[in-house]
């Protein structure tokens, strides 16, 4: 089974991350006692609720923000206290409100990156998975590996060199790099699921390739791809953070988390919170997303 799931070359993101295969996990889960299953489902729901809360905060940051993120309404470098939960930065802006407003930029650019990666990766993966070994599969395989060969940060930097800095460009660049993983994964599951009996049956009944994909294969590959998406969402957040830390994402007055961390690093010696707290926020969101990815993978 793993043989069909693995790409031709034994090295691959899909192979490394989901190597043992969703089917193997499903077989292992079949014998799970109902009480444990219920507990795990509850855990998923709690995590999804947390994520929903984050999305609400991202859309309406003023709901929880206590100050204006750009207003200078405090003494510079006040340490965290009752009025300024996370303290203030070098010119007296409220760090808590800035972090809350920064969530919007981070979540939205990560969403853009993941959507680009998902769409591009699925198209490439399905095209190459339909007829494994065909010339199209080979060309797309070499192309995928060529993109993988360039480290994600460098690829994004190359795109930024051409199209200029900005959160939008950075997100699309990150999505481009992440598309390779999706392409590998989707190719693997498409090849695997086209060996299922019901897919062969559908073909025998005269279903064309498009119908076979949309009605029979996609519902089956949905789950592993969903879990992988959650994982890549976290990685996209980290990558976008790194890019804006390097100075290629949002420009400084913006409360994007990478920008906040880069700005705070200069004052690390006497005001640790300016750089450390936005990083904690970023870590918390990524941990949440990774946990969701893990739970979804287990759930299948």
């Amino acid at each position: 089974m793993t043989d069909t799931l693995l790409p031709d070359t034994p090295v691959g993101v899909g192979a490394a991350k989901t190597g043992s295969g969703p089917v193997a996990a499903a077989v292992a889960r079949a014998a799970e006692p109902p009480r444990r299953r219920r507990r795990r489902l509850k855990e998923i729901h709690v995590h999804l609720l947390l994520l929903a809360a984050l999305v609400v905060i991202a859309v309406f940051p003023t709901l929880v923000a206590t100050h204006d993120p750009f207003e200078l309404d405090g003494i510079p470098f006040t340490s965290p206290n009752g009025t300024h939960f996370f303290g203030t930065d070098e010119i007296g802006r409220d760090l808590y409100s800035r972090v809350v407003h920064g969530l919007q930029i981070s979540l939205f650019s990560a969403t853009l990156a993941v959507v680009v990666a998902l769409v591009l990766g699925s198209v490439v993966g399905i095209l190459s998975g339909l007829r494994p070994g065909s010339w199209l599969d080979r060309v797309l395989g070499v192309g995928t590996e060529a993109v993988m060969a360039v480290p994600a940060v460098l690829l994004a930097l190359a795109v930024i060199t051409t199209y200029g800095r900005g959160a939008f460009v950075a997100a699309i660049a990150i999505g481009l790099g992440e598309a390779t993983g999706f392409a590998r994964l989707v190719r693997g599951v498409v090849i695997q699921s086209s060996t299922f009996t019901f897919v062969e049956a559908a073909r025998t009944c005269g279903a064309g390739p498009i119908r076979t994909i949309t009605r029979h294969i996609v519902p089956n590959v949905f789950h592993p791809v969903l879990s992988y998406t959650a994982l890549q969402f976290g990685l996209a957040l980290l990558a976008i953070g790194s890019l804006s830390y390097l100075g290629f994402g949002e420009a400084p007055p913006s409360p994007e988390w990478g920008v906040l961390i880069a700005g705070g690093q200069k004052y690390l010696a006497h005001a640790w919170w300016v750089a450390i707290i936005p990083g904690l926020a970023l870590t918390a969101v990524v941990v949440l997303l990774n946990r969701i990815a893990y739970l979804l993978q287990e759930d299948h």
Binding site: S242, G264, L268, I276
Partner: peptide, 14 residues
Amino acid sequence: VSLPVFWIGILFIY
């Protein structure tokens, strides 16, 4: 692996 690399660096510096 969920931690941002640049942030760990800053944390270590601190």
